[in-house]
Design a protein around this nucleic acid. Sequence first.
DNA 1: CAACAACTGTTATACCTTTCACCAAACTCA
DNA 2: TGAGTTTGGTGAAAGGTATAACAGTTGTTG
Lengths: 154, 154
Amino acid sequence: MQDHPKKSDQNIDFGVLDEFLGYRLRRAQMNFFAKFGEVCDDLGISPGLFAVLAIVDRNPGLTQTAVAQALGNDRSAMVAAVDKLEGKKLLERRPAANDRRSYALFMTEEGTAFFANAVERVSCYENEMAKCLESDKEKQWLLDMLERLAHKSL
Amino acid sequence: MQDHPKKSDQNIDFGVLDEFLGYRLRRAQMNFFAKFGEVCDDLGISPGLFAVLAIVDRNPGLTQTAVAQALGNDRSAMVAAVDKLEGKKLLERRPAANDRRSYALFMTEEGTAFFANAVERVSCYENEMAKCLESDKEKQWLLDMLERLAHKSL
DNA sequence: CAACAACTGTTATACCTTTCACCAAACTCA
DNA sequence: TGAGTTTGGTGAAAGGTATAACAGTTGTTG
């Protein structure tokens, strides 16, 4: 059944794609996001929302644009994210002290408890995914390499 | 865009995000896609369209769903992609010989020339990005690790 | 053969993300 | 002060992605 003319499954030649970091990075990241969804679907948060919570949790009082810059995405993307998180009563906007244009973001008590639970779950799944790496030193090496690739400029 | 050391840009605590592979993968991949856009904006193709061309170029006659499965995305996403590439006269749909439901995808002559040029450009930028890796052996090791992470299941 | 299941391309829908233009507030600098 | 510029938040539009449903076709099975 494997010699039929239809190249049905694994007979596909990926050509240059096999040697391109960009393509492999995308595939790996897609898998991580999919697994994140499986683990956290009942929590109702996406990887992006989780990242916002992580920043606000450790840096209370930041403005929306400060969080956006930290995460590397546009500040306009932050309004929908904060709207959702505020709707779930996980964080709240407070008027900034010295700048009436901006809001300062703070976690609610409910939010800190929720985030602690989420971190536990995500850490568990991260460790499970990292099992296909040889050692903890290799994981650290990979993290360092990804950090460099994320900031490399042409 | 983040070159100005004006204020609390460095003071932000990323907390658990610093140790999460998912977050680092996303950042690295975002950078790669942004650089891809800079290099190929005049060509009018996205990383996704480039991947479709790469598959069809090396595997002429595949159906749309076969290409979709190879790239890991849904077959409904393929119609818009093939529409665009067919509109640019880079590939064409031909009725499949033995199955009147499906189309077989083939590169046009214009398409193969276009793709060869694109590959040269993307290879150049890939090599530039890979300069922050120590050696060629490290790059190969990174590719292998990403391959494992892309197929790891919980 | 006929009924049924599975598959292909397609459309529609919804969601998420990114990009752009806009307005109000704040800042700059004379 | 006040004109001009910059910054913060918002909303609309565009692009990509995932799901569900549908018509036409294929294969499978009784």
